[in-house]
Design a protein around this nucleic acid. Structure first.
Lengths: 246, 246
DNA sequence: TAGTGGTCTAGACCACGTA
DNA sequence: ACGTGGTCTAGACCACTAG
């Protein structure tokens, strides 16, 4: 009843106040900040309002809260580099380029022992295998080699691969899944270099990816790109708000 | 008053319920889900409990809420690959390796016109420049070439670079900053390959990084690694809980 | 105009950590 | 034993969107 400027939301005002103290260095990392009841008193709001403001800041990575102990300024240091290059059609279109896909192979065949192990299935079980050469404006940009557990993409043999990638198709079917990825630099085999129309002395950027969900491994893929035509662009962020799904 | 199992927190139970509907496909992306009042009724809890459960799921990227309209299942598609390889000493130690740094150069000198432009400063202003060769277990792993705006690291000339990296040092001074990064595959120059003790026909993985804060560009760096000894490992996550700082 | 989500209140009980 | 944060309630008013 006593505040005159409720025009902006007390929750946001409290959050801004705390953030300002942290970024200005007034409250150092690891330090304890005033308790909920203290802030409740100094802002003249209910405890729930303070609580949710602080809860938001916890999710956003500014604070760490220890029940029974207090609220502390989060330690920095957890930085990650993020790359949003996962779907090649989206990537090319975003650049204003024109995408074309050449399907080099696409079959449903028995898995080799090595493949079966990667998918945690029995050897000889059917597995979907595709090899696709992606062009940007008529020039080869990426050679994709992909295995998919057929159970997750029953219509794999029928998909129109010029309009969508297997990756985006899988994303629709299994939206919330995880994966690992690794990037390295290699020269590539003679055949790969020919397919990618590469000059000699130009290396390749190779991305290997494996994704899974709770029911098992979904897909294993490797993407090979010419080093002079490919570059992965990402951004660095402090690792805030990274809530685990379980 | 009527529920017999308050043992786990209603908020979490409601969240689990909604997540289950989404991941099972029962509630498709873009679909509208029951309103707060509907969930309030069906779970027999107060509206605030439902509200905060749904609010959490919004932060975690499962839902999108439109005031006045309703709550909708978030569109998937925003996936990112995350790399936590930013500090080389941490990376090597985490692998159980032994790190050693050889400082090839380290000086404070006038910025060239090109450098000055990257830092948005006047040409000829002093800039800190370091070139460091990082070894893992006695073998060269990374050639780091870094420029730093002296204002952000006044003691740059005095830091013990065998115990900490310039990166980690900067992180302490300017905790909440942003950056961009790009990765490519190159052969590298003759000198670079010699320093890295590389065999011929092995390419390099090159990471270029630029970070800034509100006061300006902090540092520009390039890291060169032998393709046969380096690999960047990351994980793929659906882009959830990515709250912007402002 | 009716329904939606966004915000806030003034209580309450609990589990936990610290002393 | 006391203070901390975690959770929940049963109301309330607001801005917004939709029909």
């Amino acid at each position: 009843m006593t505040q005159d400027t409720p025009a902006k939301g007390m929750r946001a005002r409290i959050a801004d106040h705390v953030i300002a103290r942290i970024t200005s260095g007034e409250w150092q990392a690891g330090e304890r900040i005033p308790s909920e009841s203290a802030l409740t008193a100094s802002f003249g709001v209910s405890r729930m309002t303070v609580h949710h403001a602080l809860r938001d800041l916890t999710t956003r990575g500014f604070l760490v809260r220890r029940s029974g102990s207090g609220t502390y300024v989060a330690e920095p240091g957890a930085y990650v580099a993020e790359y949003g290059h996962l779907d090649i059609i989206e990537e090319i279109v975003a650049r204003g380029g024109r995408h074309r896909a050449e399907v080099l192979r696409r079959d449903l065949r028995p898995a080799t022992p090595v493949e079966a192990e990667a998918f945690a299935m029995a050897a000889g079980q059917p597995i979907f295998h595709a090899q696709i050469l992606h062009y940007e404006d008529g020039k080869p940009l990426e050679l994709e080699d992909r295995l998919i557990a057929p159970a997750f993409l029953p219509d794999a043999m029928a998909i129109d691969l010029s309009a969508q990638t297997l990756f985006s198709r899988l994303m629709l079917v299994r939206p919330h899944r995880e994966g690992s990825e690794s990037v390295c630099a290699v020269m590539g085999s003679r055949e790969e270099r020919t397919l990618l129309q590469m000059d000699s002395d130009i290396p390749c950027l190779k991305v290997s990816r494996k994704t899974w969900c709770s029911e098992g491994v979904v897909t294993v893929a490797s993407m090979l790109r010419p080093g002079d035509r490919a570059r992965m662009d990402g951004r660095i962020r402090s690792m805030v708000g990274l809530v685990q799904d379980h």
